[in-house]
Amino acid sequence: MLSISNLCVRDVLKNLNLIVQPNEFVLIVGANGSGKTTLFGSISGMIKPKAGQILLNGANITNMPQYKRACLISSVSQDPRSGTIGRMTILENMCIAYMRSGYKKISSNVVEYFKTKLSVLEMGLEFRLSEYVDALSGGQRQALSLVMSVIDDCKLLLLDEITSALDPKASSMVMKITDKLVRNEGKTCLFITHDTKHMNCFNGRVLEMKDGRLKQKN
């Protein structure tokens, strides 16, 4: 369970409170500048809050360094290029994601596991493991980022405007993949977007962010 209480960040988030239950899907919508990405940064550890507390499954992670927090929280941001490394192969990218919480042996069974995960995308990436990620389109890279974010047993999945850099076709494909992955993996997910049409894509709680505060969206 994620519990945020009285979170203040710069002058953007003002005494923000939020509770996300295990396996719950929460969609946060809001206009540009409302503080969505600041909230994403505060939870993932990129931004240090001025005041408040962030608890994940009872543990206080407010001052935990970002790289340590990354072992508990998976995140995918808006730029497809930032979630993958173009100059590494698909397999190498998957290996780095798999070793998020510590070094593990990459056996042939693990490679098969990667292939099974990639097959969910229905893009044939499981047959292209030795290809460089630079050869993939923006939509394919974002889809790969999504698979990489759920490859290990992270407690929370944070998705920040993951379709904003994609064209409508790729955007719709990524949304379908997100829905499928979140349902298959049973992850607790916080989806941040400015696009209100995403509200219809998922079954979950919808919150609206306005002037650094959250309220239930009707």
Partner: peptide
């Protein structure tokens, strides 16, 4: 090795490396 992969990831993108739990 896994260590080498993480080391090279730091060179390509520090943000990526941090996102995947590497102490840059």
């Amino acid at each position: 090795s896994g260590f080498g992969l993480k080391l090279r990831a730091v060179g390509y993108s520090q943000q990526f490396a941090i996102t995947f739990g590497t102490n840059v």
